[in-house]
Design a protein around this nucleic acid. Structure first.
Lengths: 209, 209, 209, 209
DNA sequence: AATGAATGAGGTTTCATTCAT
DNA sequence: CATGAATGAAACCTCATTCAT
């Protein structure tokens, strides 16, 4: 009984690990090559499994991408909350958020998020299959909007600016592609860029005294 | 002789007009459907010509996209210069630039530009085939950077911020996708958004007094 | 103008001939191998064209089979009518029908018709895509039923037998598969078989005197 | 020792029961969906066992179908003989046969038998793997032929008709598909149809007096 | 013995590109 | 020139079969 249970749980664990691996690899390949330039064959062979095996985990290519986005968004939300707990003022929280989104592992996730908003075919895909993603993204945007409103209430941020536009502007800073060249040129490290960009944004929304 | 020459030139004019039309239509379709979801068939049939005819103007699908980007960038440069002439202060010029990039016809071009920076497959395409585009984009960035430096020299902009980062931030504002939802919700018109966003940016880079 | 028209019509003619050829070849292959054992590759290569070309004529494998059935049924109806004109009594007409259905070229078509009624997957296909086929087959059955009723009215056929059952029995004679072995053994030619089978049927439905 | 033997025999019995169950279920699914539309997965899951287990009983999908046909034919032969014992005249025996073949449980088997004769891929399968089936079917045909000859000898049936053709015609009546529509329309019950069809056949082969 | 995850050959379909007319 | 039929490489996906557990 116990052995059987352990056995089950082991198999299940292996299954989940494999699924996780597929998601990870697929994310990389999609980022490198783009959705259409990536074949299921390539994903499978990079994972080191057969094409058919991928289909045991995800019913189709579409669903694989959706799953990647979903996992990423959930992780981002989770980490966002964790990171918001450690700070006090709304501005400090938003700054922490910015830094976190660009930090090591998350730059990939942030890039994917940004691609949602920028490629016509992905948008289509989400319109058709990604109902749940809309909610998750709304939660991200909602958290940001809340912090901005909180800052306004405290008199930190300019209350005459519409929160929705501030939110959009803040989120548009989460498009790491714009900074890739800066990084590529090697004159800055990510933290520099985020710090400066953040400074521009927060000065920009500061309440006039 | 003369008649033949006129004939030639007429033909040539028609040819150019058609090429222009193909570029225009293709741009629309690419924006609607995305690169991979758009077939040469669809472009040809929307233009009202045969598929083969498209290949008389552009050697391949890749080159067609490159040509679109090239044309757009050149047009943007041209209009940018025109629009910069009408203003006096660097900030006024940059504001005019922002408004212009979102104005009617240019929103499409701006969207395409933004997609350069955000989709993995386009980037690859440009890396392989789009040598000339790099130069054009550098010119755009250069104009912005010049204005920012000019502003710094006049004491308008904060000289402690690295110009390259300011430039990047400014250009990242040219990602209309971020605002699509704001527009879709119907609470703002493009000009509102640009005005507010610009306000944030320019306050953000203002020199401290 | 005329030349263009002729040109058009020539192209169109070639197109139709090619389509006809595909239908013919596909019918043969489907008969030999069955629907699922036949690949589009095989059809194309037997016709001597590329796989993609088949798809210029038929949107999918399904539609190809449907088209074959439709063409066959229409041809059968046409020939049936022709063959019914040459005879006088209902029985003579039905006998002519039987012979005609087994005659040279039609044995193939008859075999296909029969396969409609006997394979589970074909039935499914027709249920989904073959609306028009149902009508055509009904016309065939209707013609037979009419002849049987006519014969009853003349006092030739037994009026106590339900026409629908007589029709079914008659049509079940159109299943050449049952006779293949007889033919294969070489002791009979098709006409013998049809003659004897017909004799059994017509005696069977004869009015009692 | 004895216990081990009993154990063995118990296991063996369970094994046979499961094999029987697989055959039964597979038959149903093949009839519903057709050979190619049926996956080994579906069969296994309907039986309630793992896919691999099916392969412990049958080396492949082909062999499973062959086994079904073999079992069905053997059962038909067994039941045929039983049913022939209860009747006296050849005609009564053949009539009993007809009714029996359409009776409740046997309609399925009859349908499968009929599909042997009507689908190209099944024929191929039997040509390659189904040596034994040929013999069994010959036995069925032989029994019918014997009865017909017996009837001829008694002066019941028309001796001028070739027995082989009479046999073929009789067996072609065993194609329940032809009657499905009659049944579907709801105007007849199976027994009506068989009775009328049989009447046509037996009148058709009756000796002239 | 039983399982079911893994495999990979094979099938259908799409579409950028070519080329004879 | 312009056309659009033809091509065939390449993608997605299924499923019979195997094999480690």
């Amino acid at each position: 009984m116990t052995s059987s249970h352990v056995h089950r749980s082991l198999k299940e664990k292996q299954r989940q690990e494999r699924e996780e691996l597929i998601l990870k690899v697929a994310q990389d390949v999609f980022l490198e090559r783009g959705y259409h330039e990536t074949s299921m064959d390539e994903i499978a062979s990079r994972v080191g499994i057969a094409k058919g095996t991928v289909y045991l985990h995800f019913p189709g290519k579409d669903d694989l991408v959706i799953a990647i986005f979903e996992r990423d968004m959930q992780e981002i939300l989770r980490q966002m909350d964790a990171c918001l707990d450690c700070q006090t003022s709304p501005q400090a929280k938003l700054e922490a958020l910015l830094h976190f989104m660009y930090a090591g592992l998350f730059s990939k996730r942030t890039q994917l998020l940004s691609s949602i908003y920028h490629s016509a075919d992905m948008k289509r895909l989400f319109a058709e299959k990604g109902g749940c993603l809309r909610d998750l993204w709304d939660q991200v945007a909602h958290r940001v909007a809340q912090l901005l409103d909180e800052g306004k209430a405290r008199g930190d941020f300019d209350a005459t600016l519409p929160t929705s536009i501030m939110t959009s502007t803040f989120l548009s800073l989460l498009s790491p592609k714009s900074y890739e060249r800066l990084l590529a040129e090697g004159r800055f490290v990510p933290d520099d860029i985020v710090t400066h960009t953040g400074k521009i944004f927060f000065r920009g929304i500061q309440a006039k005294h």
